[in-house]
Design a protein around this nucleic acid. Structure first.
Length: 275
DNA sequence: CTTGTGTCCTGCCGGC
DNA sequence: TGCCGGCAGGACACAA
């Protein structure tokens, strides 16, 4: 499940492969992925003749900048992009193909079909869903610690749930929330309202460290990992708690626990993250 | 207003 | 062996 670091790695790699290319046509075989416009035919016709100029990232969203439009794309759990030659075999679960005029293709694959694409007018993307309520991610220079602190401390929800809320802090998913709370030494079930200023600052710093570290790892491994199929992959960084349940904690040797928090698998160290 | 629940979708896993 | 129910998960619509 791609979170901020994975999306950032995909962005950097994909950018090299599609910038300057012009869309000749678009095929969509699972229309539900296209959330906007309502008519999938329009998605295709609007894109024809437009050139890819940049790929940006906002939180876990990828933004493809074209001449007049922006494609706002979310990979959800299993979405993947790859650039292929038009003669390459189309792999299973390919749902959207952007054919370029140079004979290459940008293909979107997604086993679960949970991913989404919104085609919006250039410049309008931050004024409407899905981006309108999206918070800053903690790696952005203008991330406001003050705003973050206020949102956290006025909430009765548990901190795990708060950190998954993209309107509070963008970019964290289930894996990096668990890693962030471990690094901050905060138990996932503690209510936002009962966290001290120091704890909230710790959490923000831990999020920055966790995400930076992961981006760095994606950045170092990505070079050798764009295969001939045009697929972009990456190696999983070392995780302290996520999927480490029943193993000893890397800090204190206590056994990592796995519980459910709001329906999400949640991993923590009972000693390093006291209730 | 805030918080909780259902929904989408399919591969996988455990139980029988 | 093979079937089948249940589960996982990000974000949103809707309910309470």
């Amino acid at each position: 499940m791609p979170e901020l670091p994975e999306v950032e790695t995909i962005r950097q790699t994909l950018k090299q492969l599609v910038i300057g290319k012009t869309v000749e046509s678009v095929d969509v075989s699972w229309p539900k992925i296209i959330q906007e416009p309502d008519d999938v035919e329009q998605f295709s016709t609007f894109l024809q003749g437009q050139t890819m100029h940049d790929i940006r990232r906002k939180g876990k969203f990828l933004l493809f900048d074209l001449d007049k439009h922006v494609i706002v794309s979310h990979l959800r759990m299993e979405g993947k992009y790859g650039v292929y030659d038009h003669n390459d075999e189309v792999m299973a679960h390919t749902h959207v193909i952007f054919h370029f005029t140079d004979g290459t293709e940008l293909r979107y694959r997604d086993v679960r079909k949970f991913g989404t694409m919104h085609l919006q007018e250039k410049g309008m993307e931050t004024t409407k869903k899905p981006l309108v309520l999206l918070a800053k991610d903690p790696l952005e220079a203008d991330f406001s610690l003050q705003t973050f602190k206020e949102k956290v401390q006025k909430s009765e929800r548990n901190i795990k749930n708060i950190l998954l809320d993209q309107s509070v802090i963008a970019g964290l998913g289930n894996i990096y929330v668990d890693e962030t709370l471990f690094l901050a030494g905060v138990h996932p079930l503690i209510k936002g309202a009962s966290l001290t200023d120091e704890q909230v600052i710790q959490i923000k710093q831990a999020a920055v460290m966790t995400l930076q570290d992961a981006v760095r790892q994606g950045g170092t491994t990505i070079r050798s990992y764009v295969n001939s199929q045009g697929q972009i992959g990456m190696f999983q960084q070392q995780l302290n708690v996520y999927a480490q349940n029943d193993s000893p904690c890397s800090k204190c040797e206590d056994i990592i626990m796995k519980i459910k928090v709001n329906g999400r698998g949640t991993h923590y160290c009972p000693t390093c993250q006291p209730i």
